[in-house]
């Protein structure tokens, strides 16, 4: 079985899928990625699917699952590089890619993660006390 390599770039894990994935490869990627997130403490995952000529329901579900797992492990996932024909097919297939953030390319994906992290209200930056939650009516 082929394995998809996971690269660490700064605070981000980059997964560039270059093979026509079997279902087993997809499941292995899920597990490898979860381990790498914990091991590295990275707060962002970018999955580049530029080379994928199809995304079927299995791979679509894998992407959603990876996004959910990452979130639980305090990392944001952004899927980048989806081909137009793949997007059209996904929608017609009925896949909504729940909970997945997308960007057009790796660069924009990195920007998106940077913005997300900057917006986090309770991060570990030493810039004063944690704000009081505003009372809701």
């Amino acid at each position: 079985m082929e394995r998809v390599p996971i690269l660490k770039i700064g605070d981000i894990l980059l997964v560039s899928i270059q093979v026509d994935m079997s279902d087993q490869t997809a499941v292995a990627l899920q597990e490898d990625l979860a381990e790498r997130i914990v091991e590295t403490g990275c707060h962002g995952v970018i999955i580049d699917i530029t080379a994928l000529d199809i995304v079927d329901s299995f791979v679509g579900r894998m992407l959603s699952t990876i996004a959910s797992i990452s979130r639980v492990l305090d990392a944001e996932t952004v899927v980048v590089g989806m081909r137009p024909a793949v997007a059209i097919t996904l929608v017609e297939l009925g896949l909504s890619l729940n909970g997945i953030r997308t960007a057009l390319n790796v660069e924009r994906g990195m920007e998106l993660i940077a913005i997300e992290r900057a917006d986090e209200p309770y991060d570990e930056r030493d810039d004063g006390p944690i704000p009081e939650p505003t009372a809701s009516p």
């Binding site: 279902d23 000529d53 199809i54 079927d56 299995f58 024909a85 059209i88 097919t89």
Partner: peptide, 16 residues
Amino acid sequence: LVDQTKVVTAASELAR
């Protein structure tokens, strides 16, 4: 290209 993508995706679902 879009039709290729659609039929390959359909075939992937059905073969699975």
